[in-house]
Amino acid sequence: MMQAVTTTTDIPDAAPKPSSEEAVRWLQAISAERSRDAFERLYGQFAPKLKSYMIRQGADPATADDLAQETMVQVWRKAEQYDPAKAAPAAWIYRVARNLQIDRLRRRKLHEVELTAEADRPDEGPGGHERADERPDADRLRELVDTLPDDQLDVVRLAFFEGLSHSEIGQRLCIPLGTVKSRMRLAFGKLRAAMGEQL
């Protein structure tokens, strides 16, 4: 398990985590039927995590509430774009939250390739992979995160949660840039191996 950084606003996880499949059904019910019930379940599951994410990215609690709410509003509005073949629900919601915090907290542009369901993928030429439409396996990912060595998990969390660039992580941990990058590569290599990709 990840070491939880306990703050006064943290509350324990009472209910067991719903499976990824359950959250897929909620998103599909929001998309197909505008299901308020499914949305409220998804909100219950993700909004407190999103607030936690925004606080780690440097938002004060009121701003974190606002950004967690705004993320969920966008989830409601964009649910039709969610494609379960391409991403787990947590990964898709993470993207929405990340793009929102980059825009609102960092006031930067993130350039990214649109990955909507409608976006046509480029033709896969020789050497292209044919697994691009397979969603990474969330359960194996969870096991992986549990087994990453602390030094690798630390650099990953400083990037994903605290929004530090590789050189800022090097300064924070007093390690060379090359070491930051090699730990990132090792963590990513294990992630890909755990998901059954060839290294």
Binding site: I11, K49, I93, F160
Partner: peptide, 24 residues
Amino acid sequence: LERLAEAEALGGELLAELPAAEMA
């Protein structure tokens, strides 16, 4: 693109494992 999706899946998993912060 596939690798980016994998790295974002890691982001999603890290998000899912964060401790909950009570909403106002």
